[in-house]
Design a binder for these strands. Structure first.
Length: 838
RNA sequence: GCCCUCGUGGUGAAAUUGGUAGACACAAAGGACUUAAAAUCCUUGCCCUUUUGGGAGUGCCAGUUCGAGUCUGGCCGAGGGCACCA
């Protein structure tokens, strides 16, 4: 048999793919998008999986007659470029551009149907100048603000560190102890959209439930009320927020945050200072904070209980009360909140039960807080009500007494977008001499990043630049200083999908194209972006719509698919160093040796491929060895796309063998001898091919690409068995064309080549699947006795109970169970089973 | 701690959504072809039986049903998200 020359075939077809587009003039639009990559240097298997899945969908939709938009770009701003540039004394721009070139060449070798005319790169001035314009629009629409927040400050590098750059409280490069420093930073007011972002999740049936739930929890709605407590002997009030106003009669203290206005009174008190120190020593990780002991500082101040005359409650400053949620103050009801319970135990505060599970009004000692439902006790006018009715009644009273109001809070915080970095989009704001901050005039855009920067000095290169920072306020002609912060790279990726609709437009987007192509019909990417990227993008869409009423789209991604990771075993040498798979020779499942040193290698668990553990497989090597089609075929087979997949060398090898068989089959069919046609055989053959077409089409629609691949193996086997039967060359050829067309989205090079050899003229058309033919097929039908399957009979579809019964009883396998027995009942389900109860 | 998802052969997984459990693939064992190897093809898969057959069986325990991998309740285990959010 002739071996398929996949290298020649792939080269030939990739040239054609580059020149062709997935456009169907009169077709319905379909925007297929995979999350664009960060140009880190080379593509990895994760990219291969992501983009192969996307390519199958894009090609499939195109063949089905859709007008498909399938673009690709580069998320090219970010910290790694800066680091790499420092390390190799390169310009970040050059480093990035080189990587893009390499990765683009690699992507083309996968045979993707990408429209490279639409390519964009976020570090391009042509891209980020529009972003600056949008920033100004957002600013003018009141969606940008400036606030003080804490950052991780590296005193040696004189720079702000990202959370992942802080290792055990020290800077990753300088190893200096990281300080918490308060900086004034820019924010997008995403919290203005909390309610909308939450509510609109309901309009996204095409999103995984899991992602929607994660976003829902992230936004974190809680419904409750605000309530004022009057401070005793002072003409002042403390406003608190609670979701349990029903437990007000169980209140035994007020707790406020360390940063609360009232806490400031004690700043010169040495005991308070000690307390503050103690709080800051607890640790910085969130888990440490959550499990930390609850401690408090007694202010010796009291408030009056709003509903119990002459009752007063002490005010404590407590480490577990957060300033940036609600009002930084709460009332503590120890009996029905675990934190309050712990606190009350420590400071010997009263624990008053006001909700009873079982109408027990006695005040037995509690071992832990009771947070469940029940009847109100000990609560004056609330007594006897259940929790939810009590909430309504007390809120009514609070409003009536004008001491508070109903309120809904969200956990979501505003999006901090300032980064003290060089390699990012400059924020188009300037500082005037009088201390005010204003946006630059739009006519002065773009604010270009200077290329002549010194990255080896510590601190922000933009701040260190001799001239870039200095500018002039256009309106007044007065000198001003530029903002040296650059934008978080999540901003870049929050609207690239809109830019793809009109990548050459002079404006950030062309309204007509945007309204035509948006929303993205199918978005595909990793689950790690479930919250931030997807939430920010949703915010951007809404913000753009607010700034421009001509935009009709309010949710950017109609359907979302999150694919799993690519995993591989890990290998460790006897000295504890990680080894690359190519350095290891496997003897069997549990044994492996170091190829060079011949020493034994420890085989570790299969984990997501990562450079640090060296369990990576280079896609380019695989493509060279087995061909792009085989790599694509393998990565789509075996595991469902949403789950993790194990990379296996034997797997990709067997994939290539199967593709060779398809090639052989094509040659066999082309050279098939003329034989007499057996009409009924030919009809059965056509029906069966049609049936597989139906199953494959359905599997792709359901994103069950692994199931589709399995169907191809089956249909191949069936086809191979049919060749020797009395079926004409023409029938065989038509059948194979059908199969190859179904295969085209998976293995575009091989399928195109074979189709060409079979003289197929309408390669781009999805084969017609005749659903009527399906009905004539014979089906396997189960015969059960007492619910146990005793026989499987082959019958015509849609046979009546009477006819099936006749055949079923005759079956020797069944009859021995029912002979001499009285059949009490017969259950018949058309086309499925008949069940005799004896 | 709270929330969510998932448990099917040696492995990755299918299962028409309550109706043939294990399709398809990897690995293993055995066999066919071959002087031999590679390649290719076939068989097996847990228990009993020489075979024909039969039985058990989808994490564990119960329940609903003629019939449960699928539905309900409880338990065990794995993974993920959130984390003092009042």
């Amino acid at each position: 048999m002739e071996r398929v020359n996949f290298q020649a075939i792939e080269k030939k077809w990739q040239k054609k793919f580059e020149a062709s587009r997935l456009h169907n003039k009169n077709g319905k639009k379909f925007y297929c998008l995979e999350m664009f990559p960060y140009p880190s240097g080379k593509i990895h298997m994760g990219h291969v999986r992501n983009y192969t899945i996307g390519d199958v969908i894009a090609r499939f939709k195109f063949m089905k007659g859709f007008d498909v938009l399938h673009p690709m770009g580069w998320d090219s701003f970010g910290l790694p470029a800066e680091n790499a540039a420092r390390l190799n004394n390169l310009n970040p721009k050059k480093w990035t551009e080189q990587n893009i070139q390499t990765m683009k060449t690699q992507l083309k070798k996968l045979g993707l149907s990408i429209d490279w005319d639409l390519e964009i790169s976020t570090c391009d001035v042509d891209y980020y100048k529009h972003q600056q314009e949008m920033f100004i629009d957002f600013y003018n629409a009141g969606l940008v603000s400036r606030k003080e927040t804490y950052v991780n400050w590296d005193p040696v590098e004189k720079t702000v560190l990202a959370n992942e750059q802080v290792i055990n409280g020290k800077g990753w490069r300088s190893n200096a102890v990281v300080e918490r420093k308060k900086l004034s930073q820019w924010f997008f007011n995403i919290t203005k959209y909390s309610r909308e972002l939450l509510k609109d999740l309901e309009n996204l049936p095409g999103w995984p439930q899991k992602v929607k739930l994660m976003q829902k929890n992230w936004i974190g709605e809680s419904i409750g009320c605000e309530l004022d407590f009057k401070i005793k002997n002072e003409n002042k009030k403390i406003r608190i927020f609670t979701t349990r106003p029903d437990t007000i009669f169980g209140a035994s203290f007020i707790a406020i945050s360390v940063d609360h206005e009232i806490s400031k009174k004690f700043e010169n008190d040495s005991k308070f200072k000690d307390f503050k120190d103690q709080c800051s020593k607890i640790g910085t990780t969130e888990e440490a904070l959550a499990n930390a002991e609850k401690i408090g500082f007694d202010t010796k101040l009291f408030v009056e209980h709003p509903f119990i005359e002459n009752k007063i409650l002490p005010i404590y400053v407590a480490n577990f009360v957060l300033m940036d949620y609600g009002n930084g103050a709460i009332f503590g009801c120890p009996a029905h909140d675990q934190r309050d319970f712990d606190f009350a135990k420590k400071y010997e505060l009263p624990i008053i039960k006001v909700v009873s599970e079982n109408e027990d009004t006695s005040q037995n000692e509690l071992k832990e807080a009771y947070t469940g439902n029940g009847k109100m006790i000990n609560s004056s006018f609330l007594n006897g009500l259940n929790v939810s009715d009590a909430k309504n009644k007390i809120i009514e009273k609070i409003v009536l007494n004008k001491i508070g109001e109903k309120k809904t809070l969200f956990r979501l915080k505003d999006w901090g977008i300032s980064r003290q970095r060089y390699w990012g989009c400059p924020i188009p704001m300037i500082y005037l001499e009088d201390g005010s901050v204003v946006p630059v005039d739009k006519s002065e855009l773009p604010i270009k990043l200077p290329e002549d920067v010194n990255l080896s000095d510590s601190g922000n290169p933009l701040k260190n630049h001799p001239s870039w920072i200095k500018t002039v306020h256009k309106k007044t002609g007065k000198p001003a200083l530029r903002e040296t912060d650059t934008l978080d790279t999540f901003v870049d990726s929050s609207w690239y999908f809109i830019r793809f609709c009109s990548p050459k437009s002079k404006n950030p987007y062309d309204v007509k194209s945007t309204n035509h192509w948006m929303p993205v019909d199918q978005y595909i990417g990793g689950i790690e972006h479930a919250i931030l990227h997807l939430l920010y993008s949703r915010f951007f869409m809404k913000a753009i719509k607010r700034c421009d009423e001509k935009i009709t789209c309010s949710e950017p991604f109609k359907n979302l698919f999150t694919q799993g990771m690519v995993c591989h075993e890990t290998y460790k040498d006897s000295d504890g160093n990680w080894l690359y798979p190519e350095e290891v020779k496997k003897i069997n499942e549990k044994k492996a040796i170091n190829k060079l040193k011949k020493t034994e290698v420890k085989i570790g668990a299969s984990e997501s491929m990562s450079k640090s553990k060296k369990n990576t497989i280079d896609p380019e090597t695989m493509i060279k060895q087995y061909g792009a089609d085989a790599v694509r075929w393998f990565i789509l087979s075996d595991s469902p796309p949403e789950k993790d997949i194990q990379w296996s060398d034997t797997g990709v090898y067997s994939a290539s063998k199967f593709l060779q068989k398809i090639w052989n089959l094509t040659n066999t069919v082309i050279n098939a001898k003329k034989i007499k046609n057996d009409i009924s055989r030919a009809k059965d053959f056509e029906n069966k091919i049609n049936f597989y077409g139906f199953k494959i089409d359905k599997a792709i629609n359901n994103f069950q690409l692994n199931v589709a691949v399995a169907q191809f193996y089956e249909v191949y086997r069936y086809f191979n068995e049919s060749i020797s039967q009395s079926i004409t060359q023409k029938t065989l050829s038509n059948g194979l064309i059908k199969i190859l067309k179904l295969m085209l989205p998976f293995t575009p090079h091989l399928a195109n080549e074979c189709l060409q050899n079979l003289n197929c003229k309408d390669v781009d058309k999805w084969p017609e699947i005749n659903s009527k033919v399906l009905e004539n097929l014979e089906i396997n039908f189960a015969v059960q006795v007492n619910g146990k399957t005793r026989d499987i009979i082959l019958i015509k579809k849609d046979l009546s109970e009477k006819d099936v019964d006749k055949i079923a009883r005759k079956s020797s396998k069944t009859s021995k169970y029912i002979i001499d027995k009285k059949i009490v009942k017969t259950i018949f389900i058309k086309n499925k089973i008949i069940n005799y109860i004896i």
